[in-house]
Amino acid sequence: MLPLRLRAALLSVLILVVFLLAWQGATAGFGGGGGGPATGMDPEYAKLMGLTATTGKSAMPSPVEVGRQLWAVLSDPFYDKGPNDKGLGIQLAFSLARVLIGYGIAVAVAIPLGFVIGMSPLMSRALDPFIQVLKPISPLAWMPLALYTIKDSGISAVFVIFICSVWPMLLNTAFGVASVRKEWLNVARTLEVGPLKRAFTIILPAAAPTILTGMRISIGIAWLVIVAAEMLVGGTGIGYFVWNEWNNLSITNVIIAILVIGVMGMMLDQILATVARLVTFPE
């Protein structure tokens, strides 16, 4: 019997292959029929029409087409043909920069504030209603307000990332801080450790795994939000890329963007998962 890891990997590959074959089969199926629009079309007229209309080709690209286009896009990721047409690498860099700024600000706000809330039952109760109301608001709902008040679409996008990614971190930090074992705090108290040092040497490491969980949820949200925000305000970024290709009804490029977004999101998550492993302690 093969080890579990290897078997799982083989099964993953098998699922992928089955999926790709099914996809290829489904998209190829429409092409062969030649039913409907293709028959008896005036060649002059056909010249003005797209392949979907003339040959009945599926609007859905086949995996081979997507693969070919993916290769084309990935082989020149940093071209710059003006403000509205840049390589996927540049767009990703724009999105990442926005996410990192917005997320960075969210971390800088959520963790200290989470400490305050976690340590003070008064603050916790006082702020709770605001947090509960603000937390479930969709990024797209924030956008018009941000655009209107901040008056800068770039900063608005960063703001929306901030406001959407701040809550899981805030709540997790507050929860992590509030549930630090009393005995650890007592250890620090009997050792006459000052409040600031206590926060850094006891509460922070004790709450770190919970905080990191919040940070992982948040980076996922931030990455979700950036795509939506960039689709809305446009300009640059992977979200703009999706929108621009949607505008062109290029399903192939949209699929590529989806792949890239997924892989990038996974990488961001994995980075934080690695950090989480470093700060997690067995008890």
């Binding site: 403000p83 509205n84 018009p144 689709m231 809305l232 305000v233 446009g234 300009g235 703009y240 621009n244």
Partner: peptide, 9 residues
């Protein structure tokens, strides 16, 4: 010339 996503924007 900057392409924009919608009229409101």
């Amino acid at each position: 010339v900057v392409k924009t996503a919608g009229w409101a924007v």
